[in-house]
């Protein structure tokens, strides 16, 4: 069974598909030539055009609204996805930036992203974090960790730049939530929630890392 167009000169390669009748996985083939042409086209476009980066900023009201809706330190994957999509709709992030930003679906964008990243921190404790769930849904912590991976020797840091923007917004949301909580409790202890968050509970991080390290191949 072929899943893409038919051409006499096309090369077909194996793929796995869902049999619509049985719901079972079955082997088929796809038009590899067509896919590679599409990828090559994207690579050529990437060479000619600078990457599109979102440059809009959120208003204070929008930050407040987000702060009411999401807890930056405790977000589910679907909440995080929704949050990132909101930032894309607002022009803070471009589609290119959101393609690989820890959402539940990562899209390959040929030509724009280097395959290699280098860990830019003296401490490697957090370098095993891959997903939001690795840090228990703490999006603030997740974004902070992910900013430490950078494209080696390049001034173009699409992913790191995107995570930095996300981190800044999450910090603002966190501060807004902190001030709201502070107002509600009439607390005057002067604690800065942002500082508290950025300081992070190291024991929690260690627990998360230990969990990842103890991970073996998942039961598939």
């Amino acid at each position: 069974m072929n899943v893409a167009g038919i051409s006499n000169t096309a090369v077909y390669k194996p793929c796995y598909m869902l049999n619509q009748t049985t719901g079972e996985v079955e082997v088929g083939s796809y038009n590899y030539t067509s896919l590679m042409e599409n990828i090559q086209k994207q690579i050529e476009e990437a060479k000619l055009n600078p990457p599109k980066i979102g440059n809009e900023e959120l208003s204070e009201a929008e930050i407040e609204e987000l702060a009411e809706k999401y807890d930056p330190q405790n977000m589910s994957q679907s909440e995080y996805d929704e949050f990132i999509q909101y930032l894309e709709e607002k022009g803070v992030l471009s589609r290119l930036e959101t393609s690989d930003l820890g959402m539940s679906r990562i899209t390959i964008m040929p030509g724009y992203f280097e395959p290699a990243y280098i860990w830019a921190s003296s401490s490697g404790m957090e370098s095993s974090v891959h997903t939001l769930s690795d840090v228990g849904g703490n999006a603030l912590q997740f974004a902070q960790i992910m900013t430490k991976w950078e494209v080696p020797g390049s001034s173009v840091q699409i992913r790191q730049g995107a995570y930095s923007k996300v981190l800044e917004i999450l910090n603002q949301m966190n501060a807004a939530r902190g001030s709201t909580a502070s107002n509600q409790t009439s607390s005057t202890d002067g604690n800065d929630s942002t500082t508290l968050t950025l300081g992070m509970d190291l024991s929690y991080i260690q627990l998360a890392i230990d969990r990842i390290k103890s991970e073996r191949i998942q039961s598939v």
Partner: peptide
């Protein structure tokens, strides 16, 4: 596992569907 959306040619994977580890 890497998936293609045939109609658009978009390639993607789902971080939650993986194998491997440290």
């Amino acid at each position: 596992p890497l998936m293609v959306e045939v109609e658009t040619g978009a390639l993607f994977y789902v971080p939650g569907i993986q194998t491997g580890g440290v």
